[in-house]
Every structure is written in structure tokens, then in C-alpha cells.
Design a protein around this nucleic acid. Structure first.
Length: 652
DNA sequence: ATACGATTTTTTTTT
DNA sequence: AAAATCGTAT
């Protein structure tokens, strides 16, 4: 039995023990939000609620795994039957079962952002839009526009008018592209990330029997990070909780930082209007940070309007005031961070207690180089995600062809990786293969080559041979692991890697790891289906417990995490807030929330640094401190009440 | 006409 | 670092 009263404070205890109904929990940063959610799930299980009747939506799959793992520890139970994960992965699970009700084949595959971009690019090519002479937006921008329209449930025109007004005169063309994109996705039997959510809602809306089945099943629906949900996600939640009405949403409107992908913190603001009988709880005791860090964070976020009034109380003892570090230039900034990290490490601080945060991935370059130079171990949590790297996509494309020979996107990728096969030849080949019942078998025949242009024959033959190597493997032994080893050893992929990349051996290591990782899945189909929704290997997370590394991360990816020592670099105006983000409506407030999230990650010490001069552009550019620092600065310097100290690093 | 390699530009944030 | 662009070779 868990002793809830001693494990939780009174605020948390009330939330955990509350019977049910609509519950809104406003949880400030560091107030034990995850703990509360975890104990509530444990309590539900302990009080006899069957695991399969609980749904827990979190912001990352990792968070769901961590929470459920913790529930198992404290409640000594099995949580495998709890439906947990991101909205995308939950929606995916429902759709695997019911996609045919929406006119999809249940074997639909998921297009990640790169796939989506490529389909859009091909739609643009079909429509003969000349990108060059007219300054027409690139395919990734079009993808963004289309995605935003879905996620905010507005028209394309509105999205363009509010966020991309300089493309208004292209509205017609963009509409055509969107239309063709929709059609192409249907032809390909794929859903992009947005379709997962949109179709999930459509499923519940249009099929009352499915809605009834699912909403009867989920007696308790819990949602974490509710401030970062969009309209579709909120609708899905409302519908899933409609039978039993036990819906608990947890969030902090001050930490809403995902409006760029359609998140709308109105969801959390208007929750009491949608559920007039809801009970509101506040967790406002901060256990994480020193009073000094918290004071600075509170001071900053108070400059925002339209938020729930909050008063985060610190319980920790006095600590060090946050420090603003003005460095002469970018290199000095990196030098400072590395120097300080080394000092901390020498005084016995584990590297894993330190994080370097920044607004945009490319801000981390100099620090990375300095860490390498000084042999400081670090782990980067931003930039290209593991599963989006070229070599990972290459080998999984072979697997996709094997499991589904009609997977056009996979064929394209594979074919174009061979010499003298480019866009045009690839299309020619696919035109021949598409109508076949089994394109793979046709391609594997030697006679197929007679249809091809001379130049492409050698490449196509090589490709055919590689595929044959894979086809002769016994069906039972056709695991991702086996396929990877065949590709490397007999399929010539190792040679290919070496010829294209300078870091071929590191990529090969990745592939071996990928093979091992895949063994957690029941089948290759499962593995491939889940792949698009994964960001990094959970393998790494577990090994990370034992490894001692400094974390380098964007602020976005640092959400929900904490460290004893936090460095926030590039705190110059224009970098945070990012100049580009300020152009959006409400951009400054969102950037301020981002700043708030960054500050509240720190437990003991917080360093905010910026270079006084930036040499990366054309000519030197003098930088001012972030407006978020200026607006909380005291009028007089060296004011005893200043929320921070200031150091200047100049000269040699 | 196509494919490819050298050169230039351009970086927000993510499921 | 990766993508877009441009000129050259096939």
C-alpha cells in the first residue's frame, strides 16, 4: 500500500485522491506535476480500476514510458494495458484498427515530415509551378502552411494571411497544391502526422459505434501538458471522455511553447467554460529551484498578459543569484561555458547535472567544438533526429519494400540511391511497376532491365541483386537485424556508406544499434509503423542513466526536464526572442514563455550568457541583451535588489 | 535530356 | 550541416 499522505504535499494529495469528473490542474514549473499524475494513476490502479480503462496522453512517448514505469515501481503492478503515449501514437493505435472505416486500407503507412515534403514537391512539379522566377515558396514552407491550416482548423487563406501575408498572391496555387497533396496521399495510402490526429477525430465523429466503444472503455482520461494541445487534440480528448466524464487535464499556461504547430493555450483557458462543473486545482509550491532563480522567472513571466494568476512559492533555501554573462564574442561565450563546466566537474559535480540550453540548434556549434577540444562528454538533443538520418531511412526503405511492395516513397528512395538513376528514370520505372500486383517480383526478374534506358541498366541491376539477396532470406528470418547485416555485408551498402560519408563507421554503428532496437517489436511491420513516430531510440534513454554527459538541448526539448546547473546561451535580443518569431502574432509572449521554461529548468545555478558582438553575418554586429533581461533589470546598476548579477568577459 | 558535382545559401522550435 | 542552385559531363 502506498502512503499517499506522506509521499505528497496537501495540494498534490487532493488531486491524487479526487474521485473523478472534470478536473483542471494548474501546475506551475517544478511543482511536482509528473509526480502527481503518476500517483494518481497508481491510486486508480490500487483502487481497482482496470488498467485497460485508463488513457494517459503525454507530450512525448518517453514521458509516458517513464511515468508508467514509475507507477509499476510504486504500485507493484503491471501497466502494459494502460493506453499511454503521445496523441499521435494513441491516434495511430486506434486507426490501425479502424482505418478501413475511413476508406483507408488498414495497412496504411505514416509519412514523416520529409516524406510529406517530397510528396508536396512532386505535386508542385505536376502543377508546373516555376519556383525559380516567381519566388514561389519552397516545398517545406508549403508543407508548413498546409499543416498549420489543419492543426488550427482554419482555411489555407487565413493561415497565409496571418502568418505568410507576403505569399497572399499565391493563395490559388497553394490551394491547388494542397488539393493534389490530399489526392496523392490517398493514392499512396499514407497518412502524415496531421492526418493521424485529424482522422482520429473524424473516426470518432463519424462513427458513433466506434466512439461509443472507445469512450465506454476509457473510464479515466488523463492529459499531461494540456497547454500544448491543439483544437483537434482537445476534441479527441473531449469525445473519449464523453461517456464517463472523468477527464483530468494538467498543464501550465505559462509554459505553452508550441503554437507554431497549432497548439492553442485557449484550450486550458477555456476549459472551465466547456466543463462548468469542473474542479480547479493549483499546484504552486516549487520544489525545484532556489528562491533566486524562481524570483527571476516570476518577474519575467509577469510581463505576459492573459494568463491564470499564479504565485509560485519557493521552499528551497537561499542559493546563488542567476548570473548574466556578457562575453566579448561567440568563442568567448563557448569558452566560458566549457571553463565553468570543467570547474564544476572538478569540484565533483557529475556532468549529467549540467545542461546547456539554446533557442535554435545552430546556436550550439561553438560550444560543441569547445567541449570536444576539452574532452567534456556531451549529448546533443537537438538537430536531426536519429530516425530522420539518411542511412536510417535508407535501410528502412528496403524493409518497407519487402513488407509492402507498393510503397512508392520507399522505392523512390532506394532507386535514386543507385548511379545514373535520378528523378526521371525513377519515375519511368515506377510507371512500369505501379500497376503490377507484386512490383517487387517483377523488378526482381532479369527481363525487366530491357525496359530501361541504357545508362541506368548497371545501377538497376545492382539494385536488383541487392533486393534478391534480401528475398532469398527465409520469411521467418527476415528480421530488421538480418536485413541490415545482409545490406552491409552482401548488398554493398557498407561500400556505399564509405563512398558517400566521411563518418561511415559511425553510421554503420547506428545501423547495428537500430537492428538491436528493432528486436523490441513483435514484427517488422510493427517496427516500421512505429518508426515515424519515434524521435530517438529509447535504448539510449536507458543507457543514459549510466552515462555521465552534459546535455545540449533546445529549450523546446528541455521541457519537463531539470538540471542543477543550467547555461542559457545566446541570450541576446534577436536570438531570444528570436527576431523571426516576433513577426508572428503573440510571438513576443510565446518567446517570453520559452524564456520562462528555460529559467525554470535550473535547480541550483543559472547562467545566462550572450556575446557582445556577432561575427557570423556580413560584418560584425553589436548585440544587446535580450529584452527579457532588460525588462527585469533594475534602473540602477549594482542594485542590491537586482534579480541577477552581471559578469563581463573581455580582453585576453 | 539527364545526372552529378561544385558552389552558394541558409538555418526556429517538433509529432 | 544540409539544401538549393548552377554549370558541366554523359
Amino acid at each position: 500500500m502506498i502512503n499517499y499522505e506522506t509521499e505528497l504535499n496537501s495540494e498534490q494529495y487532493r488531486v491524487v485522491m479526487e474521485k473523478g469528473g472534470a478536473l483542471l490542474v494548474l501546475a506551475g514549473a517544478g511543482s511536482g506535476k509528473t509526480r502527481t499524475l503518476t500517483y494518481r494513476v497508481a491510486r486508480l490502479i490500487e483502487s481497482g480500476e482496470p488498467a485497460q480503462s485508463i488513457l494517459l496522453a503525454t507530450f512525448t512517448n518517453k514521458a509516458a514510458r517513464a511515468m508508467l514505469g514509475r507507477v509499476e515501481e510504486i504500485a507493484h503492478c503491471y501497466t502494459g494495458k494502460i493506453t499511454g503515449g503521445t496523441f499521435h501514437s494513441i491516434a495511430h493505435r486506434f486507426l490501425r484498427q479502424y482505418a478501413f472505416r475511413l476508406g483507408y486500407q488498414n495497412s496504411f503507412s505514416i509519412a514523416d515530415s520529409e516524406d510529406a515534403r517530397q510528396v508536396i514537391a512532386s505535386a508542385m512539379a505536376d502543377l508546373k509551378i516555376d519556383v525559380k522566377s516567381t519566388k514561389f515558396p519552397k516545398s517545406n514552407i508549403i508543407a508548413e502552411i498546409i499543416s498549420l491550416a489543419v492543426n488550427t482548423q482554419t482555411t489555407l487563406e487565413e493561415v497565409i494571411a496571418t502568418r505568410y501575408p507576403f505569399f497572399l498572391h499565391f493563395t490559388d496555387e497553394i490551394q491547388q497544391i494542397a488539393c493534389l497533396y490530399l489526392q496523392k496521399k490517398n493514392d499512396l495510402n499514407v497518412m502524415d502526422f496531421d492526418d493521424l490526429l485529424f482522422n482520429c477525430r473524424r473516426l470518432l465523429e463519424e462513427h458513433p459505434d466506434v466512439l461509443h466503444a472507445l469512450s465506454s472503455r476509457f473510464r479515466h482520461v488523463l492529459v499531461d501538458e494540456y497547454q500544448d494541445t491543439n483544437i483537434i487534440q482537445a476534441d479527441i480528448v473531449d469525445m473519449l471522455a464523453s461517456v464517463h466524464g472523468n477527464l483530468m487535464v494538467v498543464g501550465d499556461d505559462s509554459q505553452s511553447i508550441y503554437s507554431f504547430r497549432g497548439a492553442n493555450f485557449e484550450n486550458i483557458i477555456t476549459f472551465p467554460k466547456r466543463y462548468p462543473d469542473c474542479k480547479i486545482f493549483k499546484l504552486e509550491t516549487n520544489y525545484r529551484s532556489t528562491p533566486e532563480i524562481l524570483q527571476m522567472a516570476n518577474l519575467s513571466i509577469n510581463n505576459n498578459e492573459n494568463q491564470y494568476p499564479k504565485a509560485l512559492k519557493a521552499v528551497r533555501h537561499k542559493g546563488m543569484r542567476p548570473v548574466i554573462v556578457v562575453a566579448q564574442n561567440v568563442l568567448r561565450q563557448a569558452d566560458f561555458v566549457a571553463q565553468r563546466v570543467a570547474e564544476l566537474a572538478r569540484s565533483g559535480v557529475p556532468f549529467s547535472e549540467i545542461a546547456v540550453l539554446y533557442r535554435a540548434h545552430y546556436h550550439s556549434m561553438e560550444v560543441q567544438m569547445e567541449f570536444v577540444r576539452r574532452d567534456i562528454p556531451f549529448e546533443i538533443r537537438s538537430g536531426i533526429r536519429f530516425f530522420e538520418q539518411a542511412h536510417i531511412k535508407d535501410v528502412t526503405s528496403y524493409m518497407r519494400i519487402l513488407t509492402n511492395p507498393h510503397d512508392e516513397l520507399a522505392w523512390r528512395r532506394i532507386l535514386m540511391s543507385y548511379p545514373r538513376i535520378g528523378k526521371v528514370t525513377c519515375e519511368k520505372i515506377w510507371r512500369l511497376l505501379k500497376p503490377e500486383t507484386n512490383p517487387l517480383m517483377v523488378f526482381a526478374q532479369q527481363e525487366f532491365e530491357c525496359h530501361l534506358p541504357k545508362a541506368a541498366k548497371a545501377g538497376a541491376e545492382k539494385c536488383r541483386k541487392t533486393l534478391l539477396e534480401l528475398l532469398v532470406i527465409d520469411r521467418a528470418e527476415r528480421t530488421p537485424e538480418r536485413i541490415i547485416s545482409e545490406l552491409l555485408n552482401r548488398g554493398g551498402y557498407r561500400t556505399y556508406l564509405q563512398s558517400v560519408y566521411s563518418d561511415a563507421s559511425a553510421r554503420e554503428e547506428d545501423l547495428i544499434q537500430l537492428g538491436q532496437f528493432s528486436s523490441r517489436f513483435d514484427s517488422m511491420e510493427d517496427f516500421l509503423n512505429e518508426l515515424a513516430l519515434l524521435t530517438n531510440m529509447s535504448h539510449e534513454e536507458e543507457s543514459a542513466v549510466g552515462t555521465d554527459k552534459v546535455v545540449l538541448s533546445t529549450i523546446h526539448q528541455a521541457k519537463g526536464l531539470e538540471w542543477s546547473y543550467v547555461f542559457l546561451i545566446w541570450c541576446a535580443d534577436g536570438m531570444i526572442p528570436l527576431a523571426r518569431a516576433l513577426k508572428e502574432e503573440g510571438g513576443e509572449q510565446e518567446e517570453r514563455r520559452l524564456f520562462y521554461v528555460a529559467l525554470t529548468r535550473a535547480r541550483d545555478q543559472l547562467y545566462l550568457s550572450y556575446p557582445a558582438v556577432d561575427y557570423s553575418g556580413r560584418g560584425p554586429l553589436a548585440l544587446a541583451p535580450s529584452r527579457f533581461i532588460q525588462e527585469i533589470s533594475p534602473q540602477k546598476t549594482k542594485d542590491a535588489k537586482s534579480p541577477f548579477d552581471q559578469w563581463r568577459l573581455f580582453g585576453d
